[in-house]
């Protein structure tokens, strides 16, 4: 086994701790940025859904502003976003580099996309259910939690899966601010020295992570559908 690995992935096996560290960095970035993105995107998505014309808190001004801001951030390429957010990152995290330095741009880069996913999921909840809950005397917060989020769980799980997979893609660019990760490892240690085994090992690791995320998402979606 050991021999086979050494034969197929000679450069990876020369410094296996570097490979493992890169996986660790990718997972750390995904977990932190993913959690923050989830909370922020969920809140934005809920506000979008509630303030749209047919929403329970219809408010044209709030909706229009949020809608435009989200579109704006979605249209900025991630690499540029890192640069644009430099000062904000420094202010919030105390540093512009490393895993810490990339969390802010990752969240800002993925939360707007997730907000759209949440909006789509919640808009898919039957208006009749909202109506029924209203008629039962349920308040706005109750309608959001007990109707929208609950009945939209399966769609939310699918939207979360897609967004996290996108996020993992973004972490590949974390090397720009020295945050490491599998993307950085594949390019700086592998591709630049023509050590293709490092590139392939990174690809396999990322595919494994993505597949796991997808499986978890599918499971949650299935469990919440009856």
């Amino acid at each position: 086994m050991q021999d086979l690995l050494t034969e197929w992935f000679p450069y990876v096996m020369k410094k296996p701790e570097q490979f493992l560290q890169s996986i660790g960095e990718t997972l750390t970035m995904t977990l932190w940025a993913g959690s923050l993105m989830f909370v922020l995107g969920l809140i934005l998505g809920i506000i979008l859904t509630m303030t749209r014309e047919q929403g329970i808190l219809a408010n044209k001004a709030v909706y229009q502003v949020l809608d435009k801001v989200i579109n704006l951030f979605r249209s900025i390429p991630f690499v540029i976003l890192i640069a644009v957010l430099m000062n904000l990152t420094k202010f919030i995290m105390g540093t512009r580099i490393g895993v810490k330095g990339v969390i802010v741009p990752l969240v800002v880069g993925s939360a707007p996309f997730f907000a759209r996913q949440v909006e789509a999921a919640l808009c898919g909840v039957d208006a009749g259910l909202v109506e029924a809950a209203k008629a039962m005397g349920v308040g706005h917060l109750g309608i959001i939690i007990r109707v929208y989020l609950r009945e939209g769980t399966a769609a939310l799980a699918r939207g979360t899966t897609i967004t996290i997979i996108n996020l993992i893609g973004l972490t590949a660019m974390a090397g720009y601010v020295g945050a490491g990760g599998l993307g950085d490892y594949a390019i700086t240690s592998g591709y630049n020295y023509n050590r293709m085994d490092i590139v392939w090992a990174s690809v396999i690791a990322i595919v494994a992570i993505v597949t796991t995320v997808q499986a978890i998402g599918a499971l949650i979606a299935k469990k919440s559908t009856h």
Binding site: D126, G128, L129, E131, A132, K134, A135, M136, G137, V147, R150, E151, T153, S224, T225, H226
Partner: peptide, 16 residues
Amino acid sequence: RRKIGMIFQQFNLFAT
């Protein structure tokens, strides 16, 4: 509103 029940053509039951 809790003193007024309502039922609908499409039933509007919570699927989950």
